Amino acid sequence: MQGRVGAPAFLENWITKVTKPVAAGSCTFQITFDWDESIGIPGAFIVKNLHHNEFFLKTLTLDDVPGKGRIHFFCNSWVYPAERYKSDRIFFANQAYLPSNTPEPLRKYREEELVNLRGDGTGELKEWDRVYDYAC
């Protein structure tokens, strides 16, 4: 049982809009999602950076989620262009779970994310590799 993935959504007016900084070096962008209530309450979201530059994603907030209100995702991570990653970037909602209490639709995604973070111990790590690999 794997969680359902909604339709892709894109940053609005990324190139044509001059944004006002929220804080030094920070900007806010809007994304409009087509909501299908049968998907349920979002526990994670997937990011593909189709731009040629990386960006630092601080947070994502979903407002007016039916039955939940506001869902906040603390990301604090660089997102590099999609061609540099072996798999899509996924960010989970700010909700901690013990492994045995993780909702079934999120388990596969959490397991895949752990495999990506562990790496395979081979090859040279690059700046965009999010592997926690230690030399012995």
Rank of each mutant, 00 (worst) to 15 (best):
Arg70Pro: 05
Pro103Ile: 09
Asp120Ala: 05
Ala82Glu: 13
Asp64Arg: 12
Asn49Ile: 06
Tyr85Asn: 12
Ala44Gln: 08
Leu114Lys: 10
Leu62Cys: 11
Pro42His: 06
Tyr97Asn: 08
Gly3Met: 02
Thr32Arg: 02
Thr122Pro: 02
Lys86Ile: 15
Trp14Tyr: 15
Glu111Trp: 13
Glu127Met: 09
Asp63Pro: 03
Lys48Trp: 12
His51Tyr: 13
Arg118Met: 15
Tyr80Leu: 01
Thr61Lys: 15
Asp64Lys: 13
Thr28Asp: 14
Ser77Leu: 07
Asp88Ala: 13
Ala7Trp: 00
Asn94Arg: 11
Ser87Leu: 07
Leu60Tyr: 00
Glu113Gly: 00
Lys126Met: 13
Thr59Val: 05
Phe45Met: 03
Pro103Phe: 10
Ala24Cys: 09
Asp64Met: 00
Glu124Gln: 07
Gly6Ser: 08
Phe45Gly: 01
Thr19Phe: 15
Phe45Ala: 02
Thr32Phe: 04
Phe45Pro: 05
Ser26Arg: 00
Asn101Gly: 00
Asp36Trp: 07
Arg89Lys: 15
Leu62Met: 14
Leu98Lys: 11
Gln95Asn: 07
Phe91Glu: 03
Pro105Gln: 00
Lys20Ser: 08
Asp120Tyr: 06
Leu60Pro: 02
Tyr132Asp: 08
Phe73Asn: 07
Asn53Gly: 01
Ser26Cys: 07
Ala96Pro: 02
Phe29Arg: 14
Pro103Cys: 09
Val115Arg: 15
Thr32Ile: 08
